[in-house]
Design a protein around this nucleic acid. Structure first.
Lengths: 359, 359
DNA sequence: TTGAAAGCGCTAACAG
DNA sequence: CTGTTAGCGCTTTCAA
């Protein structure tokens, strides 16, 4: 029974016609509001009222309806309700990359928060593809009541143009100046400043930045903050090494790091830091005696490496939860509240120490 | 303008009425098929045909329609289409716990595969709550065309009863005997057997199992396999320690592990193994000289710990992808193909070695 | 308190 | 090739 094409197929499909003569032997007709009404001997309006808990239904009728519904295992069709109500009780999340722990946590936070309010979550991954992201966003938005766009790569002008169609919309790690689109972000610059301050305080004059993926806006933020931070000091030297975002990237960069002669390395994220830690170790350097290493993110592992990693923690779940709150406010026609920038918290552990005194 | 309640509210809501006299100043009426038809001077049917690429439309008309649609930024409403077509182009995934890397990868694999076929993904988390899981599943299924249930905790009888309403349904890490519901799972027992075989081959006679969460069926599988595996040998001693699934759980168990006197520890998963590694190290034991440690899952980190972890790898992404393939087959009325059990692959690294010779 | 009827936006037989 | 018409399943006025 391979039903191809899009013909409305007898009682094979999901929705069978109201009264087809060719019903399958068993009377497994789909439970619709009409059938329940019929069974209970009332109108569809009444069934609707009962299902929605309207108090203006005679107890006796209500009971009859409930019994019929129960017997037929009836549940109102969410799709039909959505059409009639003009809302889906669903929100969408678009992320660039589902493999990124950051987005996984956002997803979780958002899903849980939305669930609490009886809403479902539609997820889509843009694969870092800008063109596709815009399409996806529009489509996802239409299937739902609101949208959360995480680390959108869509150019400002385009996003601006789209923002009306996407509303209610909440932006994560991305701001849209000149609009009222709420935005929640991590203040990477502040995190970097904290890290640099910590390192400078330990006497480090020469830092090497292990840069993340070129397309990454969070890398751009960090890099810019690093440059600015160093530029304010006259005796601060900054080396930048293109690296990446994985353990292997960090590992591979160890040699180059040593060649820069820096006494401290600021890694794009924790994974890169771990890789560097490992590579440096293999090269016979002791951390933090010979060289200090910092990460970024505070992934769960960071406290367990050897040595435990000094890093900046960011509230990943919180982003998701708060995104929901903003969205919920918007869905109810209220103001979304002020934008926020989460300040990373510097966690000083054992991978950083005083700068070695050169001879 | 806080619109509360569920009244159909003028032009404020998502869907404005077709021709309200009180339209907001700007003519931002929502683009519907009707309005496009009107603008293009054709019938709605024609617009529908054009939007769906029907070849039986006069080029001239088609162009006019496309122009009008373009001008109004018209996109057919997915919700309305879903109702009319009886399909949503969406599938749902229910997982017990979004924080679990296993499910994150399944989610990713499924999302990507479904996306390739133009389908969206609805996710919901059951929070290990059996009652809620069943409700969620039914609801999610109704919002979509098919369902993937990962590591369902729903009792067999109940799941059996539900299976018709949930179809098309694909089960992950769970089988439903007596039905044709396709199931994809990881053969934990085989993985355990491989690990035990490896350990026994190295001369270990006394193993300690660091058990996972009690509610976990995958723990049950592993434990059972372990017992069975040891029971076949006369000189095999197995100690079982309730532990958990996190690094800290493993870490906390180190002392107890030593007390069992075992020469090898089989951890519930990699995280627990890492914790044990760390705890054992602090107690002054050398791995693998004094004691061997194995994990399970082969999370990305496993190769980078000190020492690198011997573990069993499982194809997490693949589960998601294949789940989609099964579902897709089902959606097209075909057979879903044979069930499969992915065999974990034993990765021997440096956390295991010959059993120390006792004196 | 209840039912009839219109409508949400779209698709698909059926005629022409 | 195009329009008319009748739904998809549900909600919600409006009248009774």
């Amino acid at each position: 029974m391979s039903l191809t094409g899009k013909r409305r197929s007898g009682s094979d499909g999901q929705l069978a016609r109201t009264s087809g003569p060719g019903r399958t032997g068993a009377d497994r007709a789909p439970a619709t509001i009409g059938r329940v009404a019929e069974a209970a001997g009332v109108s569809r309006a009444t069934v609707s009222r009962v299902m929605n808990g309207s108090p203006t239904v005679a107890p006796e009728l209500a009971a009859r309806v409930r019994a019929a519904a129960e017997a037929m295992n009836y549940q109102p069709s969410p799709v039909a309700r959505s059409l009639a109500l003009g809302r889906t009780s669903t929100v969408s999340l678009i992320v660039p990359d589902l493999a990124n722990p950051m987005f996984q946590d956002v997803l979780r936070g958002l899903s849980q928060a939305a669930g609490t309010y009886g809403h479902r979550l539609l997820v889509a991954e843009s694969n870092e593809n800008v063109a596709e992201e815009a399409i996806l966003a529009v489509e996802a938005r239409r299937r739902s009541d609101g949208l959360v766009l995480a680390s959108s790569r869509v150019p400002e002008a385009e996003l601006h143009a789209l923002s009306e169609r996407l509303a209610p919309l909440v932006l994560l790690n991305r701001e849209l100046p000149g609009t009222s689109v709420p935005s929640l972000s991590v203040d990477y610059a502040a995190g970097i400043n904290a890290i640099v301050g910590h390192l400078r305080g330990l006497g480090h004059r020469h830092l090497t930045y292990l840069a993340g993926p070129v397309a990454s806006t969070s890398d751009r933020d960090r890099r810019a903050a690093l440059r600015a931070s160093c530029a304010t000091d006259t005796d601060c030297v900054l080396s930048e090494l293109d690296c990446g975002s994985t353990f292997d990237d960090g590992h591979a960069a160890a040699r180059a790091v040593v060649d820069t002669g820096a006494t401290a390395v600021v890694a794009f994220n924790d994974m890169v830091a771990f890789g560097a830690l490992s590579g440096l170790h293999e090269l016979g350097l002791a951390v933090p005696r010979d060289i200090s290493v910092t990460g970024f993110d505070d992934i769960p592992f960071a406290r367990y490496t050897n040595p435990p990693l000094t890093t900046a923690s960011i509230p990943r779940n919180e982003l998701g939860r708060q995104a929901w709150e903003r969205l919920w406010a918007l869905l109810n026609g209220g103001p979304a509240g002020h934008n926020v920038r989460f300040q990373p918290r510097l966690l000083v552990r054992e991978s950083t120490g005083p700068a070695p005194t050169r001879n």
